[in-house]
């Protein structure tokens, strides 16, 4: 079980930095991010942080439109073909992926694939049936 945050961002020069400044002030560590959709004049910043609940409250209190979503984290080999190997298993499990991002954990030599799916519980069940280990959030957050 892990959570990611999504923040609605206007495409203004300072907005991205305002978010990171808030997190910095509370010593919340960003482990991974992706930013999508800026051509609309707005975008969504997806953040994986080490303390998602705190970050959610902090950003929300500062007036941001923010949501928290559960993601599934699975481990891949950090080598060529590692992602493909994992995607084969995911496809076999019949899981439709809505969004995905990755994070490297260098000291453990693993790559984490984070999946946003429609039905979290069902997806977790199917992955485990296909012998895919769903990672504990502590590993994902890197605590």
């Amino acid at each position: 079980m892990a959570f990611t945050l999504s923040v609605f961002l206007e495409n203004k020069i300072t907005r991205f930095e305002e978010v990171t400044a808030s997190l910095r002030s509370e010593r919340i560590n960003i482990r991974s991010l992706s930013l999508t959709g800026m051509p609309h004049g707005w975008g969504i910043l997806n953040l994986l942080v080490d303390q998602p609940e705190r970050a959610y409250k902090l950003l929300s209190d500062k007036g941001n439109s923010v949501s928290m979503e559960e993601v599934i984290a699975v481990a891949m080999e950090d080598e060529a073909g590692g992602l493909d190997e994992m995607l084969l298993k995911i496809a076999k499990a019949g899981i439709h992926v809505e969004n995905a991002y990755t994070r490297l954990i260098a000291e453990k030599n693993i790559a984490v694939l984070l999946l946003v799916v429609q039905d979290f519980i069902e997806a977790k069940k199917r992955l485990e049936a296909n012998h895919v280990v769903v990672l504990d959030d502590k590993i994902v957050y890197g605590k």
Partner: peptide, 13 residues
């Protein structure tokens, strides 16, 4: 966009 309506879903927006 109202804050409490936001869900981080681009398609919805």
């Amino acid at each position: 966009v109202k804050k409490d309506w936001f869900r981080g879903d681009i398609r919805r927006l």
